[in-house]
Amino acid sequence: MSGIVIENPGMLALLTDQGRMGQAHLGLTTGGPMDPFAFTLANALVGNPTNATVIETTLGNLSVRANKDILIAVTGAPTPLQIAGQPCALWQRHSVKKGQVIEIGAPTEGLRNYLAIGGGLTVDAEFGSTSTVLREGIGGLRGQKLQQGDTLAVGQSATPHRDCALPQSAIPTYHADAPLRLVTGYQYEQFSVTSRSRFFNSQYRISDQADRMGYRLTGPAIPAASRALLSEGIALGAVQVPADGQPIILLNDRQTIGGYPKLGSVLAMDCARLSQWRPGTTLSFEPISIEQAHNLLHLHHAKLTRLLQQLEQHHE
C-alpha cells in the first residue's frame, strides 16, 4: 500500500540507506548518505532500524504527501520545514495525518537534508542496498532520482506517538569552521616537501564542479608527483591531484578505481562536513596521524552511541 507520494522532488531527491558495501569488485561504488550523522539521527528520531531507507535532498524544495498517518523527522542543513502549512522544527519527531503535505524548503545554509519516516520506506535492494547511484543507474526506484508522482510504501512503525527531539547542544553547525583533517598516505611520499607544504598552508575554494562523486577545488596548484600511475582502489575522501594541480576530494559516488596521484584521504566525518558546504566556500587541510584518526573515530562513535541511547529511552 502506498504510504507517501512525491508532489515535488526539488533539484535532487534520492532514496538512500547506509550504502552499498562489499560490491567494489564489480565496479559498484558505495553511495549512501553524504551526511551519515544526519541520516542516522533522522532514523533514530522515528525509532527506525539504523539501515532504514530515507530520502536525501540536495538544496531542498521537496514536497511529500502522506497517504496514511505517519511519523517523520527531518535532519541536516537548517531549512524551513512545514507540515500542513505549519512551521515545524528539524531534528524532532512529528506526526503527520493522512492527506497532509510535508514541505522541506531551501536550506539557509548547507545543502542536504534527510527525511525519515517511521517504519522506513519499503524499497527493493539492489546488490544489498537501496542507495541510489545515478552514474551507475543502481538502487532507488529504477536507479534514478525521485520524480513527481512517485509513490513509496512505508513499513510498519512500532514507535508510540510521543515527543522526541535531539538536544539543542547536539545539533551540528553547517559552516566551514575548521580545516579538513587528512590522513596522509597513498603517494604522499612522492610529493615534494614544497608541494606538501603548499597544500597544507593554502586556502582552497570549492568549485562549481562539486557533486556526490567528488568536490573539485581551485587554489594554488600542487605539482603532480607522477603522471602514469596504474589505476588503483580509491578510498572515501581520497585527495587526488590531476595534471593541472587542482585537488579533487572523492566522495560517496566516486569511481572505485583511478590513476591520479593521491596525497591521502580526508576523515569520513570531515567528508560529511564538506558535503554540506556549497561551491564558493573556502577551506584548508590539516594532516593528522592514523592514531589521531582512530581516536577521533572512537570518540565520535561514543558520542553518537550516547545520543542514540537517550533517544531510545524516549521511545520506551
Binding site: M21, G22, Q23, A24, H25, T30, L230, S231, E232, G233, I234, A235, T256, I257, I290, H294, L297, H298, H301
Partner: peptide, 22 residues
C-alpha cells in the same frame, strides 16, 4: 573486512575501523 578493491598491481583493503585498527 568491509571491501576489497583489486587492481593492476595493488589491493585496497577497507576494514571496519571500530572493530579493529591499522
Amino acid at each position: 573486512l568491509l571491501d576489497l578493491i583489486p587492481s593492476y598491481n595493488s589491493i585496497l583493503v577497507q576494514y571496519h575501523p571500530l572493530k579493529t585498527d591499522h
